[in-house]
Amino acid sequence: MIKKLRYHDEGNVHMDFHGATNTTIEFIIKKYGLDVMNDIFSKVGKDVYKNIRENIKNGDIEVLAEHWRYFFDREGADYSIDFKEEEIILTVHRCTAYEHVRKLTGSVSPHFCDQTIKTNEALSEGTPYIIDTEIIGEAQCRQTIKKRV
């Protein structure tokens, strides 16, 4: 199932890294502003996830679903994935990353979910697809990859 993934980490999962991500988001935005933070997320989408982006460019959007499934399973999230023609919808019912940060710090940066929104935008930029990210509640979102109109 993981044959297409460029990264398929194994072993234990260190959820505390999400706390460091939250600290980083607050630090960067306070010192350099929102645009700089968004640029960094854009580099993650375009450079770190270059392989997923190339697949999306070539019309293979299932690789994104494979990525979602692999890593949300590793983090014990509650989610579902629906496949339609030329469209895949990920619904995160309970985001364990968000919940872990809330448990660690008591408060989560209002920009915590930008890591998803902005990385998704960069992943789909310059491809025939767009990825919409909707925050539908606390620790809940819907991510839809579909043909660009």
Binding site: Y7, D9, V13, H14, M15, D16, F17, H18, A20, T21, T24, I28, Y32, V36, D39, I40, K43, V44, D47, V48, F71, F72, R74, E75, V92, C95, A97, Q115, T116, T119
Partner: peptide
Amino acid sequence: MIPSDHFTKFYNEVFKFLETQG
């Protein structure tokens, strides 16, 4: 979500930006 497995790759991007700042 950037998976916790990929935090270090995100960290690396943050360092590259900060290095440009000094």
